[in-house]
């Protein structure tokens, strides 16, 4: 595979048929198109720092590769972002599906309901072969009826990724691929690739690849639980004396 990177040189696409072909396959990136892309709608992640790192946010459709171990708040992050985008759909009565393909368990309805997601719009493709899973993800992504497809798979081939990316673009939806494989899969033909790790209340995000802009140092998001952990307290000022006074009053 040839990797071509043009940083500064301006060129005319139709002048070079090979380049043309590469560009059509989106294997080349040009700095001018970076500007054009910026003008295209980006989806804010709700975190200023992350938005900055992503050059204004997520692309408006496509495939995102997320490398993380399960339980780092990965789903939460994406659901929160995609949910905002779905508000518009819901207002127009246009219910789109959330699709879970081969998740590592069962999506928790109570969690989704707390996020104000109508679980009737949830689709789970479960217990299938890899081939079926990918076919389903592709069908969903391109159908135009889904807001996002969450796909759990260890490894995908270039071709598979390519198919999914095109499907998502075609259906104007997201295909978010979670993997806990530590193996680096470089240069996948997709919109965005990130890695996530968690330490206590902080999530560290490393952007491995994005269509526009550069990979950066990892950024940190603070995402604590809502909960309080202890209700015991030791107050110095004790008001028992007041109650005893009261007792004497009431006896009078």
């Amino acid at each position: 595979m040839i990797i071509l990177c043009f940083y500064t040189v301006q060129f005319e696409l139709h002048m070079n048929p090979i380049l043309h072909e590469l560009a059509r396959k989106q294997w080349v990136w040009s700095a001018t198109s970076a500007k054009q892309q910026k003008q295209k709608k980006c989806i804010s992640t709700g975190f200023t720092e992350l938005d900055k790192a992503l050059n204004a946010g997520f692309p408006n459709a496509g495939m995102i590769h997320v490398q993380t171990i399960t339980g780092c708040g990965e789903l939460d992050l994406f659901i929160n972002i995609l949910k905002q985008q779905n508000v518009q759909n819901e207002q127009s009565g246009n219910n789109k599906f959330w699709v879970f393909v081969s998740p590592p368990g069962v999506p928790n309805a109570e969690y989704l309901l707390a996020q104000h997601i109508d679980i009737n719009n949830l689709l789970v493709i479960h217990k299938t072969t890899t081939e079926e899973a990918l076919w389903s993800a592709e069908q969903c992504a391109k159908s135009g009826a889904c807001i996002g497809v969450f796909l759990w798979q260890k490894r995908l081939s270039q071709l598979q990724v390519r198919k999914l990316e095109l499907s998502a673009q075609h259906g104007q939806s997201y295909c978010i691929w979670f993997t806990d494989s530590k193996v680096k899969q470089a240069n996948l033909p997709l919109s965005l690739s990130i890695s996530m790790t968690r330490h206590k209340n902080d999530i560290a995000i490393q952007i491995n690849k994005q269509r526009v802009g550069w990979t950066q140092q990892s950024i940190t998001l603070h995402r604590p639980f809502n909960c309080h952990t202890s209700i015991k307290r030791n107050k110095q000022a004790h008001r028992a004396a007041k109650i005893i006074n009261l007792t004497q009053q009431s006896l009078n």
């Binding site: 209700i231 015991k232 307290r233 030791n234 028992a240 109650i243 005893i244 009261l246 007792t247 009431s250």
Partner: peptide, 18 residues
């Protein structure tokens, strides 16, 4: 499960009921 003070408050209030 409770703050000790809250428990003793209950006792004090109970003592005040005659």
């Amino acid at each position: 499960i409770f703050d000790t003070e809250w428990l003793s408050n209950a006792c004090l209030l109970a003592a005040a009921c005659e």
